[in-house]
Write a protein that binds this DNA or RNA. Sequence first.
RNA 1: GAGGGUGUAGCUCAGUUAGGCAGAGCAACGGAUUUUUAAUCCGUAGGUCGAGGGUUCGAUCCCCUCCGCCCUCACCA
Length: 482
Amino acid sequence: MSPIESEDFRVAKLNELKKAGVDPYGGRFPDTTKISELTDSFEKLEGATVRVAGRIMNHRPMGKASFTDIKDRSGSVQAFFQLKRLGEEKFHIHNQLEPGDIVGAEGELTRTRTGEITIFVEKFEVLSKALLQPPEKWHGLKDAELRYRRRYVDLFSSDEVMECFRKRSQIIENIRRYLAERGFLEVETPMMQSVAGGAAARPFVTHHNALDIDLFLRVAPELYLKRLLVGGMERVYEINRNFRNEGIDRQHNPEFTSLELYQAYGDYTDMMVLAEDIIRTLALQVSDDGRLPFGEHTIDYAKPFKKIDYFEAFEEANGFPAGDMAKVRDRAAELEIDVSGLGQELTVDRVFERTVEDALIQPTFIVDYPAALSPLTKPADADPAKAERWDLIIAGMEIGPAYTELNDPRVQEKKFMQQLEGEDAAEQTFRSIDRDFLRALSHGMPPAGGLGLGIDRLVMLMTNKTAIREVILFPLLRPSDD
RNA sequence: GAGGGUGUAGCUCAGUUAGGCAGAGCAACGGAUUUUUAAUCCGUAGGUCGAGGGUUCGAUCCCCUCCGCCCUCACCA
């Protein structure tokens, strides 16, 4: 049965409205006041005639009068419908209203005898009749699956959820303003790419009919943003979606939003200052002192972020250097990490993630990664086995990396080739070398620092949500057949 | 991909100790109620107990298979 046909009683009320000559799906309802303003500026507005529009959240009919809570984007206010004020005909129409319906109402703003700020309704319009019941008013929607599948219901029935997504929007707005103030240009680069470059991740494949070509949804915008550096956009960034055809868990959604940013004539140390400042600024916008709870921890963003060296941290955590492969493999086995088929550096990195990263709660930069894991990064002058790259870890989560960008086209080409050699056949089907990117580098890319920040994870930290699905409006779920 | 948990009314959840007519609260429906605050009072209705199969006189309960979701792990630059 279609959900639209399932609520007979609601349809009966809808028909009753139509019989009374009322369009149950009304139109424009202008000149409303935000409900929060009614309560914030009550002293000024008391006694005035006000108009509001919103959804009926609670309806308490009492025979010849009723109290109805109307909620808009800003808050909720009580409306009082009275037979003697509205007359038989209008009151009959009012009797067809119920929770979930969207109405516009106009009347005098006063307090009731019990002190509740209330609109004594003189006129009202039915703006949208809800044919389905809203969830129970006290518990709301609890079932996580239903909440994600029916986010629209989750949003109107939970202030907390609405607040979380409002914060998400503000965080992104604040990042944009921060970067605009520093001369960064926001751009959009292709989501559909014929070469899925910029990260070693499995892409989604799609097909363009008119051109008859397979395309990949991008796994990263990196190679396009660097082309823009070549083009002369010296400070450039993109906040947009990436798509990775990999597992789903509390920190991963197949599509996720990242900030990727490039600054010409800088390097990864500039990115460190920038990243730390952006994140601290955001934290201070949602807290008084830069300290925010996250799960069982409190993260302090006001203090300078810690910096640790990749190889030193490895040795400290494990008691032997990362170069001692026999011991590294023993340790991997001990931790029951499957490293079969992995090269040396990746084996080390798996152990590193488990023994170092997972334990890093306070914001920490892990500095100077193995060059073999960072093919787009400039090797360190002092030691070509190390790359000028850091990863920022907060609450055990990878928040983002930054590089001193490799701008030598020949070295870049060699690293691409090496990477291809290391791939198995299945991986290689997704991979080919982006020749045009190498051509762009050959035209000369300014030395630059590049930064990536996972926006979803940042929002998790700022809103104290430990599951990424809580900060993505419509996380990917298997389609249900209802 | 592996292991564990879970799925019962629109929503939130009990329950079937050990197989024997399917439960509550809220929401809904009918009635009363002109200042309520999760309104109250009286009454009514509401179910493929996730799906399919098996065992059984009888299955929501036991067994098998499948599906969704959650957790842990694995995968994931």
